[in-house]
Computed example of a mutant assay.
Amino acid sequence: MVKFFVLFGDKGIWGAILGGTLISVVGGFTTLIVNKNNISNYGDLLNFMFPKKIAKIMDTIIFISIWVSLGVMFIGSSNILLEQFGIPIYLGVAIIAITICLFLWVGIEGLLKANSVLVPFLIVLTLFNSSYYLINPLPCLHMTNGLLPNWWISGILYATLNMLLGIVIITSLKEEDKKIPLSGGILGGIILVLLSLLIIKSLSLLPDSMLYTEMPLLTLSLSISKMVGILYIVGLLVAMLTTALADTHSICKRLERRFTYRRSLPLVIASTFVFVPFKFSLLVGILYPLIGYIGIPLVLAVIWYGLKSLKVG
C-alpha cells in the first residue's frame, strides 16, 4: 500500500479505487469465461485466449511470477518471526513451510478451509487497526512521490499483480465446483477497495520515520500498545500465509503434468529458500511492480474475452 498508493498522497486513493475496480471486473470476467467454456486450470485458459506459442510463454511467466510471490511471502513471514520472537530466519522459513504442507496436503480443500477461517479474521483485524489509527493519528511529515511513475499506473499494476494469482486460483476452483458464482470475483474486488481505502488513509497519517520502515503498520501497532502490536503481527502472518497457500497450490497444480501434487509440494516449498538473503521491502518494491507489468497482457485478454462472452450470452 505504501509503495503503490500512499506515497502519491490524495491521488493514491484514486489509484486504489481504479485498482479495485479492475480487480472486480477481471474477477467477474474470469468466472464468466471459466463457467462458459468449462475451463478447470489456468493452462486451459491460456490456450483458450492465446495462440499456442504465446500461451506457452505466458504460462512460464505466470509460473515464475507466482513462485516469486511465494518467496516474498516466506521472507516476510520469517522476518516477522525473527524480529518479534527471535526465531532464526531459516527456522522461521521451516515453520512456515511445515504449516503450508499441513494445510495443503489434501489439496484445494485445505486452501479453501484455511481461507474460510483466516480471511474473515484478517478483514476484522484490518478494520479494527485502521480505524484505531484514524481516531488516534500521529503528526505526519511531508511525503515524497514513490518509485512508480503516477497513481493511475500504480492502480493498474496493483490490479494486474493481484489478478495474476487471482485468475489462476479462480480457474483451479472449477475442479471443485460445477459453476463458480459470478458474484465472487466482483465482491472480492469491492471488499478489497473498501479495505484499501481505509488502510491508505490510516497509513497517510504516519510520520516518515514509521512510513519508511520494513512494515509501517506493524511499527505503529507496536508503538500504540503491546496488545495492538500482537494483533497486527497475527494479522500480517495470516495475510502472508493465505497468499503463500494460494501460491503453493497453484504451482503444485501446474506441476501435476510431471509430478503428483504431494510429491511437488515439498519441492516447491524448498525452492523458496533462495530468497532468504533478500530484504522483504526490497523484494516488494522491485519485483511486485515488475510482476504487475508482466500481468497486463493476461488481464487485457481476460477483459476482451469477457466482453465477448457477455455479447454471446
Rank of each mutant, 00 (worst) to 15 (best):
D59T: 13
D177P: 00
I135Q: 08
M227W: 14
F259T: 05
T213E: 11
L283E: 04
I224L: 14
F74S: 06
L265K: 00
V228A: 07
E109V: 05
D177N: 14
S250Y: 05
R262W: 01
M1W: 10
G189S: 06
L298R: 00
T213Q: 11
K113T: 04
M240L: 15
G285I: 06
V106F: 09
K174T: 02
L267I: 14
L236V: 10
S281Q: 12
L283A: 10
L148K: 00
N136C: 07
L211Y: 02
T160E: 04
R263C: 06
S131Q: 04
N38E: 11
L148V: 02
L7C: 03
L148S: 00
P88W: 13
I191Y: 05
L45S: 01
T144S: 14
P120A: 07
H142A: 12
G110V: 05
A244H: 06
L81R: 02
K36L: 13
L237F: 14
Y133H: 09
G9M: 09
F259K: 02
L255S: 04
N145F: 12
L192E: 00
L147C: 01
L197Y: 07
D177R: 15
G19A: 06
W67Y: 12
A301H: 04
I167V: 13
N41R: 02
M215Y: 09
V238K: 00
G189H: 03
S281E: 10
I233T: 12
Y232H: 15
L112A: 07
L46R: 02
G146N: 05
V276K: 04
L218T: 00
R262D: 11
V312G: 09
I61K: 00
I123G: 01
L307M: 14
G313M: 13
G235D: 00
E256Q: 15
L195N: 06
Y261Q: 02
G306C: 08
L157P: 00
N37T: 10
F128L: 13
I291N: 03
L236R: 03
I269P: 01
M215K: 11
G107E: 04
L310T: 03
F5H: 14
D247P: 09
I100F: 02
T30S: 15
L122T: 00
G146Q: 03
V68S: 12
A94F: 11
